[in-house]
Structures are given as C-alpha cells and as structure tokens.
Write a protein that binds this DNA or RNA. Structure first.
Lengths: 148, 148
DNA sequence: ACGTAGTTGCGACCCACTTGCAATTGCGAG
DNA sequence: CTCGCAATTGCAAGTGGGTCGCAACTACGT
C-alpha cells in the first residue's frame, strides 16, 4: 500500500505553462483539464475534487487529477478524515494541522529543514509533510488544554 | 474536520486491566469488546477493524473501537490510502512509512524528541506522529532513487 | 432470578472514489 | 479546412471503508 502517484513537482508558474506541459507530455488540453487547472491557479489553496468539478462530472475530474499528479503538476494532501485536497505541486508546501481545532496551514519547506534533518539523522528517512500533515496541538489549543 | 476521538492514552498493561478500565468507565465487558482487546493484546501490531472482527460483525467492532478510543485504551493510524489500523494506546509509538516501498515502522517517541522540539520552536505546534505517520523515503529507497 | 440500560447483529445507507463503455472531441495529417 | 481516430468525457454502476436505525439480546446491579 504505497503512496500513489508521487512524481517530482513540475515547475509551471502559470496556467499557460501548465497547459504547455500537458501538451509536452502528449496529453490533450480538454475543457475539464483546463477548468481544473484554471481553478487551481485562480484560488491557490487546496480544493476537493467536488469543488474543482463544480457541478460537472467528478469522475473525469478524478481521472484528470490522477494524470496531472502523475506528471507532477498537481499533488494532494489528506488533512483529516474527509476527502483529499488537491493543489498545485510547484507551490511546494508542507502542511500542519491542529488535532483539537482542525485549523491547518501550509508552511514553506525551509522552515522545517532543521526538523527534517533531525528526523533523517535519527531514522534514516528523508521526510516530507505534503501528503500527510504534521498533526499537533496549535499554540491556542495548547493554551486552553493547560487551563481547561 | 478535526481529528476524531483523541484521548490521553490510558495505561493498561494487560488485558485484565483493560477490562477493569472498561468497567471503571461504566461500560460493559461484552464478548465483542473482549475479543477486540484480546486480539490487540495478543499480537501487538496495528490491525484493521476487519481483522479484529474476524468474520464477526464489523459494525460492532467499529463502534467498540470508537468507544475504546474515546476512553484512551485504543488509537488508530492511517498509514496510506487503505483502512485505518488500530492498536493499543498505552504502547505509545510514532509511525514512519516509506512513500516508495510502503514499509512502515513504529518508533519510540523519545527518538523523535529533538525533531518535535524543532517543529514546536518553528511552528508553535506540539506534534505527534501517531495518527498520520511521518512520510518519507527510507534509506533503501533513497539509495535506489539516486541510482535508477 | 429479575429488570433494564447498554450492546449487538443485521441491513440499509453514505461518502469518496473507481471503472466499463458508448458517445464525443482535440489535434496532427492530408 | 476537414478528416480520422485515439484520447477523453459523461453517465451509470460498482467498490471499499465506515456509519446508522432498530429490534433482539445480555451484562450486571439489586
């Protein structure tokens, strides 16, 4: 049960270069693909497949997210028990979420360099927090936990 | 969408003390609960609800795992896209899994103290890797990745 | 041994995808 | 520009993992 479809992120800073990348991989630029990518570039935060489909056919959207993920344009994260959230892969970010209040944020990978090095030194694994987030108590919830 | 049912682990080193803990919480010791706990104490590794049900009624097993989790006897981890894996909460362990080969291991929380401190210093979150694992490339897969 | 609230087991149901397949369409060749 | 056809879509049906309603059953205090 390995983690599906992990490809190196492909650098496509805007919608146009993403569509070019599609064609460069011998894939077609269809309406559904254009829509999914347009939405992801428009509001740069992780979205569910439902949201990206926006009333259209979800099956196609899932298939497209799969192929976009396979070529490294898109990735997805599981922040909790709900549906997966898809985002652009070139906006490389790690995720943190609070187990108590459910808040989450994307953090620049550099900020976790020290922690990742510590993990690699201790376990031999080079970690990333892009598929599953770091789960913990945020500052606010640590507070209210101490004074219940 | 917060992470469900996270209770402080309850220290019950053996089956008998777990059953006592159940009664202490005003809960009944039913056949299904006895079976689930017996299995978890017998082979101490994370198990799916299916496995724990072993042909019996899975719905009851899920309900019981829920209540056992609520009182801190049990916890569950999501190692990938498959079903959740349940284990005893008192055997407190963090998890690491390899994104390439799917291998996973439980690691003693102390070994990750430095990394967790680094994360808390940088992000303000006090992390645990018991619900979602640390995902990364294991030593073996880093190797074969470098020489494909 | 009894009463009853807690639990079970079954079936139906829900959500998040996935798949089979006929109809459609992007796009390179002519 | 328009043909040809493989890639892609849209729908419907299916699957895996988990939840829920409810009548029957049972653990446990009295």
């Amino acid at each position: 049960m390995t983690l599906a479809h992990h490809a190196a992120p492909l650098d496509a800073p805007d919608l146009q270069s993403a569509l070019d990348a599609l064609r460069a991989h011998g894939l077609r630029v269809s309406a559904s693909r254009r829509q999914v990518l347009a939405r992801l570039y428009a509001d740069r935060r992780p979205r569910t497949a439902e949201e990206l489909a926006d009333g259209g056919d979800v099956a196609s959207v899932y298939r497209n997210l799969d192929t976009l993920e396979a070529i490294g344009l898109v990735r997805h994260v599981h922040l909790g028990h709900g549906p997966g959230l898809y985002s652009l892969a070139h906006a490389d970010a790690d995720f943190v979420t609070c187990e108590r209040c459910g808040a989450y944020e994307a953090v620049a990978p550099e900020r976790l360099a020290a922690a990742k090095d510590a993990i690699e030194r201790e376990l031999g694994y080079r970690p990333r927090f892009t598929h599953f987030p770091i789960v913990g108590l945020c500052a606010g919830c640590k507070e209210s936990h101490a004074h219940p």
